[in-house]
């Protein structure tokens, strides 16, 4: 029993059970680091595992993204756009044709 409980606790820690403050910090980090090259839609339409998000952060770092709090950003992405989260259909753009 004790062993199981410890294992569970260990896996919860390993899974990085993030608290509210960390997630908020992560969202701020996203605002700070992710906007120079593209808007956030291209990020938020993805649903990725922790490993998947971590790989994306490495890819973006390779292209010049500088993190001050990579861990919080990763927690926020996994908690909000993890592969266990439902897919939300993208929005429609507004009509861009010039009206005569």
């Amino acid at each position: 029993m004790m062993r199981t409980a410890l294992l569970l606790l260990a896996s919860a820690l390993a899974a990085g059970a993030a608290d509210q403050a960390t997630i908020e910090k992560g969202q701020k980090e996203e605002q700070r680091t992710c906007l120079p090259c593209h808007s956030l839609r291209i990020i938020h339409t993805n649903r990725l595992s922790r490993a998947g998000w971590s790989k994306e952060l490495d890819k973006m770092a390779g292209w010049g993204t500088k993190y001050t709090d990579r861990d919080a950003l990763l927690e926020y992405l996994v908690a909000t756009y993890g592969d266990d989260k439902p897919v939300t259909p993208p929005e429609m753009s507004a009509d861009g044709r010039t009206k005569q």
Binding site: R41, E91, M92, A94, D95, R97
Partner: peptide
């Protein structure tokens, strides 16, 4: 939501 010049309403991925 933003409009893209010259385009009808489209599915906005980015």
């Amino acid at each position: 939501t933003p409009a893209v010049p010259g385009k009808r309403p489209m599915i906005l991925h980015n």
